[in-house]
Write a protein that binds this DNA or RNA. Structure first.
Lengths: 136, 136
DNA sequence: CAGGATCCCTCTAGATACTG
DNA sequence: CAGTATCTAGAGGGATCCTG
């Protein structure tokens, strides 16, 4: 980890200390809380590629309930990561697309997702050996 | 986002598709689920700097309960991100430290944490304007 | 000191049904 | 098509007491 990143993280940590790690004032927790939802990263991943309509997103993430799809999209929109555009056709259609802020987040975030894909086996192996050691 | 990252993410997505985004088989969800816990990133942040004992960690993250500290540490250990070493002194002391796997995760992850620190204000602004628009 | 065990509660997320 | 409303189960998380 280079020095620039290290000091940025340290600054964030310092903020948390001053505010007793209050969720609302700690940048790390405030931002992570949202992107760490069960579906957030999957939707960001889908919308990072290109804009999608509601129904398309539902098909891209088959096991999401329509309630959680709506809610997660609204949360992402509220934090400024995605935009919602309504086309007053009949029947109506709605398109979701990433904002510049969302793209700027997805840059670093995608690196973590890539890490997950590359190291998934290592994690599963660690998990197995932990369980086999009887510490489960 | 460069091409290497893009294709790695795409590969992960493809895996998820084949398995209907099953939590156990989707690398993204499997890894993100753990590091997205309420306390995981804060503890990784603390242990990235240097090893710490149980009591030190508790002081570093004042508002964590001892139950959640124990549980989160065990989860991180199970996935191979941190190590636990017991020193049979009297009274006993236990030290936690990051593993190579943990460090390799924390590289990309720290970039996201830095992003959170830098863009926290932008997110809060987006949130306010969303709420003021009456869409809350 | 570093936890384990227990009780309890909130909040998230899923299922189902209905609407402009 | 793209949602909203309601109900409910279950996980995540907290408080407290106990122990090697």
């Amino acid at each position: 980890m280079d020095q620039a990143v290290r000091s940025a993280v340290k600054a964030a940590t310092a903020d948390c200390d001053r505010n007793a790690w209050d969720a609302g004032n700690c940048p790390v927790r405030d931002v992570m809380n949202r992107i760490s939802g069960k579906w957030s990263t999957l939707l960001l991943e889908a919308l990072a590629e290109k804009p999608h309509r509601f129904g398309e997103l539902r098909r891209l993430v088959p096991d999401i309930s329509q309630r959680m799809l709506t809610q997660t999209l609204r949360d992402l929109q509220r934090d400024g990561y995605i935009e919602r555009e309504v086309f007053p056709t009949k029947p109506p259609s709605v398109e979701y697309r990433m904002t510049p802020l969302g793209r700027s987040l997805f840059g670093p975030l995608s690196k973590v997702l890539a890490w997950a894909a590359e190291n998934h086996d290592a994690v599963r192996a660690a998990r197995r050996s932990f369980d086999d050691a009887g510490l489960a």
